[in-house]
Every structure is written in C-alpha cells, then in structure tokens.
Design a protein around this nucleic acid. Sequence first.
DNA 1: GAAAACCATCGCTTTCACCGATGGAATCCC
DNA 2: GGGATTCCATCGGTGAAAGCGATGGTTTTC
Lengths: 298, 298
Amino acid sequence: MRDMELRHLAAMAAVADEGSFGRAAGRLGYTQSTVSQQIAALEKAVGGAVFDRPGGPKPVRLTPLGAVVLEHARELLARARAMTAAVDRFRAGDGRIDIGTFQSVSNVILPPIVRTLRDEHPDCDIRLFEEEADTPRLRDLDLMFFDGRGDGDVEHLKLLDDPYVLVARRGTFPDGPVRPAHLDGAPMVAHPPICDQARMERELARRGVRPHIVFRTAGNESVLSMVRAGMGSAILPRLVVHGGDVRADDTLCLHELRPELPAREIFLLWQAGRTHSPLATRAIEIAVHVADAITRSG
Amino acid sequence: MRDMELRHLAAMAAVADEGSFGRAAGRLGYTQSTVSQQIAALEKAVGGAVFDRPGGPKPVRLTPLGAVVLEHARELLARARAMTAAVDRFRAGDGRIDIGTFQSVSNVILPPIVRTLRDEHPDCDIRLFEEEADTPRLRDLDLMFFDGRGDGDVEHLKLLDDPYVLVARRGTFPDGPVRPAHLDGAPMVAHPPICDQARMERELARRGVRPHIVFRTAGNESVLSMVRAGMGSAILPRLVVHGGDVRADDTLCLHELRPELPAREIFLLWQAGRTHSPLATRAIEIAVHVADAITRSG
DNA sequence: GAAAACCATCGCTTTCACCGATGGAATCCC
DNA sequence: GGGATTCCATCGGTGAAAGCGATGGTTTTC
C-alpha cells in the first residue's frame, strides 16, 4: 500500500476512460511511455495486471482485478480533489474560527468584526465562546479577547484602552467629573473581582478609596439596573455603557473620574507560536481597525 | 494535487498521532530527517505549514491548515487501506464472478461448481445468467458455458462430450439401441433449432433421416412431458435426461442410437486474451473436474 | 549551566520518474 | 498480402528527489 501513488491511480483512471495509454498520456500531459511505466508500477504494487492489452488499435480493457482497483481509485481521487478544494477554500479565508470573548467585547467590538468577516467570507464558520472562568481555555481557541495580557505561552496584541467611568443615579453626584476620593465608603454595585475588576479595586485601595460594595453580579444589565434602582453607583469600563440606551437614560448619569483611574486594557490573545489561519489573520486586522474606530469615537 | 503523495499523508498522520517527528519516524521505519523532509514536501504541496514546531521537548501541534489537511488525509489513508484489503480479498479468490449458462449445465454441471466455490470462498459473489439468445453476451461475462466453440474473440475449453440418446414412450421402440434410420418420418418433439440442436438435425438430414417435428419447445420438462403424453419421441443430449426422475420413470425409455450421432460438445468459453480473476481460474479448474466426473460416471 | 529532546539542514548515494526513440504486435485497407 | 496505421513495451539517459547519517540550533528540564 505504501508504494501506491495517487499519480498512478490517476493515470489508471485516465487510461480506463480513454481506452488507450497514448490518449491518456495526452490528457495527463505525459508521454505514452511514462503512462506505460506508471501502469506497470501500479500493477507491480497491486500484484497483477489491471488492463488487458489486446495489441493493435483495440482499446485496452480492465481486468477483473483492474475493476476492483479502479473502483477504489476513483474514490481516492475524488477524495484527493475534495482535499485540494478544501485547502483552497481554507487559503481563500473560508473555514472555521473559534473566538473567545466576554461581555463588553461581545456587545461592542465583536459584532462589526463578525459582520465584516461574514461579508468577506460568506461560508466561514465563526464560533464564539464566552467563558466565565478567570483564565479560560485559550488552548482550543484561535483568538481570545481578554482584559489582560494573559499568562503562559500567550502572545497579545493591545486593542484599546477602556477608561473607567462612574455611573450613578442622576442627582447622586453633581454633574461633571468626580474625584475617586469621594467614593470612599459610598455604596457601590460591582462586577465580581476577577480580571481587570480586581486590578481596578486594588488601584482604588492603593489610593485609600474603599467603596462599600453592596452587590456583585457578572451581568452588566444587572449592575445598571441596580444603579437605576438606587442601590449604589458603579465604576464601569466605558465599553460597558457604550450602548445608546444608557447614555439616553435620564435616570442615570455618567461621570468622568478625576484623577482618572488607569484604564482597563483590552487585548487580543492567542497561543504563542501558533500559525494563524487566513481567517484568523484577517480577524486580527479587522479587530485592530474596529478598536481604533472605537477609540477615536470614544 | 498531483504532487501530494500518500506517503506524505501517512507521515503527517503518524506525526499528528505521536506529537513528534522522531517517534513518527520510528513508527514508520524512517529516519527523523526523512520525516522532516516528507512533511516539508507536504507543506510545499499544500502551500503552508501543517505543524507548529515549538522547539524543544514540546509536542508539535497542528496548524489550522494542518487540521483541514489531516481530516482529509485520514480519509484518504482509510480508503487506501480499504483498497489494499479489497485487492487482497480479490487475490485470495473472493470477489464477483459472472457466469453464463444454459439449462443442461444449470441443472447438472453448475450446482456442484457453485457449491465448491461457495465452500472455498464463502464471501464470493456468483452471478448466473441463463441467456436465451443464440450468441449471448459473452462480453460482460467472466465465463460462459456453451454447446459450441463460439465465434469471434473467444477462447474455449472443451469440458465433455454429451452424447445424444433417444427418449421414447415405453413400447414405441423395442428395448435396446435404435438405428437413427428408424426415425425417418417418425413424430418427434424437439428443442428449437439453435445451438447444437441445429447441428444435430443437419447431421440427421445428412444421413437421410427426416423426422417429423411435431412440436418444438425450449423447456426440457416440456419436451419430456410431451414424450410421456405420446406426442412423439425426442433425441436429447444425455445431460438433459441426467436426472434420476427420468431414468426412474416407467413410462419413458432411453435408447442408445446405433450408429451413434456425434455428441454435443460442451465448452467453457471466455473472451480471448482476458485475464481471469483467481475466482474464475478456480471455477475453470472445478468445471473441468466436475465434467470429468460426469463423463466417467456417464 | 549541563543535559536532553527536538527539528532543520547539509552532503551524499541511490533510486526512479520521465523523456525520446525504437521495436514488436495486431488491425485495417487497398 | 503487404503496407500503413495504431497500439504498447522497452531501452538508454538525465535529472530530480527520496532517504540516510551527521551536524547544528533551539527550547525545556534538572
């Protein structure tokens, strides 16, 4: 089996189609003698003649063994063609891409990326994974959005700074910037202390600001609802309140923080040393572009 | 696609399984450097890396392109294995055989042949074709039984002489041999004048014997029934009356012909120059053996 | 820092794929 | 029948490349 070659099988199929070594050679771009040798090699590999050669102008004819071989050969060749087609599609940018994400990115950054990818590659297969763990399984993903550099064998590309803003029920603070120090002891709603939330809280603490966290939830909407309900204020990355519905909400008020807190940084991560698919490469380009647009419009 | 080789795909699959070029080489019986070059060749063929090599003791890892390629490669390799398995089975004698036959052979010669073949090759696929035309389609058959040499590009092997006997209603003729001359003008039932029947009738005519054919039918049983019913006698090859039911039938009487008519000759035919399958070769051997046994017992 | 595991690369030899030309065999056509 | 035609097999030659062994560079492990 090791000494069977697709080339030989292709030659055999051509000969069977044409009924002649010479014509098959013409079709394949070989010499007649080459086809003759290819068939001879194939016959040595399978251990018997696959064609009867009547000699003279009569067409060659499959032997019973040849019929068995050809039946499988055609399937093999079809599979080989399917493979090159799949490779070509892959190289053109179709195929599958697995992207890890989290809420802010899912809501704001990812939709235009997905739309652009699907516009450019209608047949591509985009799978999104919104992981909840602190350090998700980058192992099985092509790309992952994350608000940190990641650790281990991970390469990162910084997409944008996502500055923290204060979201409060209107009237809680005077309009305009708020000093973080004013939040000391204030009731606050917050995300769980994972990812950048933890870093941000450490930064507050470093400045001696210890807000009173009255409720933690991972749901952005839940946080905002609690703020609306008067449960407390919230320090949120701007992307979280990016949607028009928050800015247009009269019961809520956005305040810049002065002096500002170090912004949450959003990165695109991938396993170090991994070769990207064309689709992934393109996704990275688009992500950078989208992030720039958001930063400029921010 | 032409420059993809099964060898390379096998190497790739082994590397993917083992996670290491060196171990894959060991499994395949190659050197590490050879596997390295095989993968390099494959990567040139598909136009991109199929493995990421982290370097050091870390296992190599499929690239996205590699995943696409491997998926198809495994199918190709499975098909290739299926092909060698099919070829091996064929060489062992399994497979299909198409045999053309006619009534006497179907009744007497073929059953022991089929039984022996099926005993030796339980998985073989024996297809029988009882053609009615005078010169049937040998083209699509592996072997054909026929009471003549055939014409055109046909090779023949004589199996046996099948002498003609006279079948008459008991009492029509005195027991013992009958002279053909006594049949001149006698009422007779006969097969249609095809195949050897025509030759036999010409031979009778050559001897000046012109029986009165009162009925022709292709069915052996019909001929015998008509003889039983007293419609006339019949000159039949001995194989036709080979069954015990005829000899044991008190209403019928078998007479030798003296001087005897030239026997019908039964041949095994096949298309000239065709390579036989092992199954066909074996079938020929068995046919010769069975024919000898019949001749000896006849 | 030494050792170990791993893959790429470089000569080198040998195999073999392919070509062009030639020869033998069967058929077709006058 | 004999020449022309249409086949495929084979031979010698050339160039590519498959495989090997040895070497070197890289990364991890201890």
